[in-house]
């Protein structure tokens, strides 16, 4: 059983919903890479506002694409992105 995660890519925005942990981080990373490639130069917006859980495996996927993405997050993940240092590498929008 893998963790529930929905990934939607639409006009430069990758929206994730559910939980990202080591069991599905690979999927997340692949989707991220595909979406980044597809954005054609401009930064991909990764919307994590519906993500209820993100662990270091998921963070690793984000770090890998840090130069090519911007992140939208809710209050739940904000401290995590701050503490992990991702907020220092890429733009994180908290709403």
């Amino acid at each position: 059983m893998t963790t529930a995660l929905t990934l939607t890519t639409d006009s430069g925005v990758l929206t994730a919903a559910g939980e990202i942990d080591m069991s599905n981080a690979e999927t997340f990373a692949t989707a991220l890479a595909t979406a980044v490639t597809a954005t054609d130069g401009s930064r991909l917006v990764v919307d994590l506002r519906s993500v209820e859980y993100l662990d270091s495996a998921g963070l690793a996927a984000l770090f890998a694409q840090a130069d090519h993405i911007e992140v939208r997050t809710g209050p739940l993940l904000a401290p995590l992105l701050e503490i992990s240092g991702l907020a220092g590498l890429t733009t994180v929008h908290q709403t």
Partner: peptide, 9 residues
């Protein structure tokens, strides 16, 4: 197993 993590959480 990593698949168990979600349930544990």
């Amino acid at each position: 197993e990593s698949g168990r993590l979600s349930g544990v959480r």
